[in-house]
């Protein structure tokens, strides 16, 4: 019996491995208007960051708070030897629920990198911007959002996010 179970388990593992290896890379599957997003949770919500606009997503580094900083700025951190500011995505987006940041989404602005804290990186998947329920229709009130997927992932408008006035501390 035990041998059978072990054999069955091995078969399932091999099948799963074969399925993964046979998978065509998502980029080639992507329709012309689709973009690949990294889906991350922040508090009680999910955000999708277009992958082609990200520098990287890294485990949350040690962040040093700055005195008298606004609430949305967690502090500064060193990533690959460069200092960058770390913003609280939950505060910036006013999400509900408790955020427990464990990852940092690093976005490269023209002047330099900026980090946004997220809780968990769930997956990468393709979405079609044309299929999103947009801000204009009132389906989402989020700032810096391209729109919502049917399963309520907020697709982040990265250029608009980088343009938020709170990101520049005067």
């Amino acid at each position: 019996m035990e041998v059978t179970n072990a054999g069955e388990r091995a078969r399932r593992v091999l099948l799963e491995r074969a399925r993964i290896l046979a998978r065509v890379p998502s980029a080639t599957l992507r329709a012309a208007d689709e973009i690949e997003v990294a889906v991350c949770t922040v508090g009680s919500e999910s955000f999708g960051f277009p992958v082609h606009l990200l520098r990287e997503i890294v485990p949350m580094p040690t962040v040093t708070a700055l005195p008298f900083a606004p609430e949305c700025l967690i502090g500064i951190a060193q990533v690959r030897g460069t200092l960058l500011s770390v913003f609280d995505m939950a505060k910036l987006s006013q999400v509900k629920g408790t955020s427990n940041p464990r990852h940092l989404v690093v976005v490269e602005a023209p002047e330099g990198a900026i980090g946004f804290s997220v809780d968990v990186v769930l997956t990468c998947r393709n979405v079609s911007p044309s299929a999103l329920q947009g801000n204009a229709a009132g389906h989402t009130e989020r700032r810096a959002a391209l729109g919502l997927t049917p399963d309520l992932v907020v697709i982040v408008d990265v250029p608009a996010l980088l343009g938020l006035p709170e990101l520049v501390i005067e």
Partner: peptide
């Protein structure tokens, strides 16, 4: 300090 922190009081 990072480029977007133009002024940090005391730092």
């Amino acid at each position: 300090l990072p480029w977007n922190i133009r002024r940090a009081q005391g730092v």
